[in-house]
């Protein structure tokens, strides 16, 4: 105990042997199927392109130079704003949902959770195709919004005839929010369920109006859920590829689509790898920031300290010289 642990690592292995043993399979799995491929992808980005579509020999920075293609900034920008907008909307819708689910009678809760995860019973691709049908110029929603309605002689329609719902950024955003909403609701609900709702009463009691109570007490109270909801939505959103591919047009491409194009039709693996590396950097940023934000130190006080402090003669301040039981000055 006294000497510095010179054999620190050995001792740690001995002390945590069982833990290492238990985690070994998953560590091995992650190493083989995640760490190694990731490193390979990163390495590929520094390889030259072969003329036949493969990967050439030697090392080069050529790929990184071509990546500053004038097309990319707008695609990266679109990827970022679509992902953040989808995240914000998902959480904005998810927070009231989580609040209501946590407040509703316990017997209804499991039903509601079931409804939230119900969409997962259908294939993701089929659901996105379903949106294509809905948003199609001859689809239900489109027809409904484009039709000229006549109410008491007043004629109006929701959308101008030339607007299309499909193949634009709006459609991508809509379907992304639809896709990721359950991933926002579930962590928010998990946090809301643990939230102490008597805090809301305390805030009402201190004079807060409902809206303020929701934002100032409930939302900070489910902060952990918000953080994980952001990660659950933002990270897959940044890497979206299917949604912009199916419901987006040429003006709503995201980085994911570009990676696909470079990797398969263009057979330019180094270029695709470089884009992947950039995307991964972008994906790692939010959790990194979240980790920094939630990192905290805790200092604790105990009740014995309080008793000791209160036992000291001056503890109760100017109490008028009343003699306290057992205290000798």
């Amino acid at each position: 105990m006294q000497s510095a642990p010179r054999t620190g690592l050995l001792r740690r292995i001995r002390h945590h042997g069982a833990e290492l043993l238990i985690t070994a399979p998953s560590m091995a799995w992650m190493t083989v199927f995640f760490v190694v491929p990731t490193v390979l992808v990163l390495l590929l980005a520094f390889r030259p392109t072969a003329l036949d579509g493969g990967v050439g020999r030697g090392w080069t920075l050529q790929t990184w130079r071509t990546i500053s293609n004038p097309n990319y900034p707008s695609i990266v920008w679109r990827t970022i704003w679509l992902s953040f907008a989808a995240t914000a909307l998902s959480i904005g819708i998810g927070l009231p949902c989580a609040f209501a689910m946590a407040r509703i009678k316990a017997q209804w809760r499991s039903t509601l959770v079931g409804l939230v995860i119900l969409p997962f019973w259908t294939s993701f691709l089929i659901r996105v195709f379903a949106w294509r049908l809905l948003l199609h110029p001859e689809g239900t929603i489109s027809v409904f919004l484009h039709r000229t309605w006549s109410v008491f002689g007043w004629q109006f329609r929701f959308l101008a005839p030339e607007t299309t719902l499909l193949y634009n950024s709006f459609a991508v955003l809509l379907v992304m929010v639809y896709t990721y909403l359950p991933f926002a609701i579930l962590p928010l609900y998990a946090a809301a369920e643990k939230f102490d709702f008597s805090l809301l009463e305390a805030a009402f009691d201190l004079g807060a109006r409902p809206w303020r109570v929701f934002w100032r007490i409930f939302v900070p109270g489910v902060r952990a859920g918000v953080v994980s909801a952001v990660m659950m939505v933002l990270i897959p959103a940044l890497g979206s590829y299917v949604v912009p591919d199916l419901v987006g047009g040429p003006n709503s491409e995201m980085v994911g689509n570009k990676i696909y194009q470079r990797a398969l039709p263009d057979r330019n693996l180094p270029h695709a790898s470089a884009l992947s590396a950039l995307l991964m950097l972008g994906v790692l940023l939010p959790p990194g920031l979240a980790w920094l934000a939630t990192r905290k130190r805790h200092l604790g006080a105990t009740d014995t300290d309080v008793v000791a402090a209160m036992n000291s003669p001056s503890a109760l301040g100017n109490s008028g010289g009343r003699r306290r039981n057992g205290v000798r000055a």
């Binding site: 805090l199 305390a202 009402f204 109270g221």
Partner: peptide
């Protein structure tokens, strides 16, 4: 409603706002 009464409550479980400091808790109202 509670916020319109000149009545305040000390709750059994304290119901302090965990994300606010002691000073901000007291200053909340």
């Amino acid at each position: 409603p509670p916020d319109k009464r000149q009545v305040n409550t000390v709750f059994q479980n304290y119901a302090l706002f965990p994300h606010l400091s002691i000073r901000d808790n007291i200053a909340f109202g």
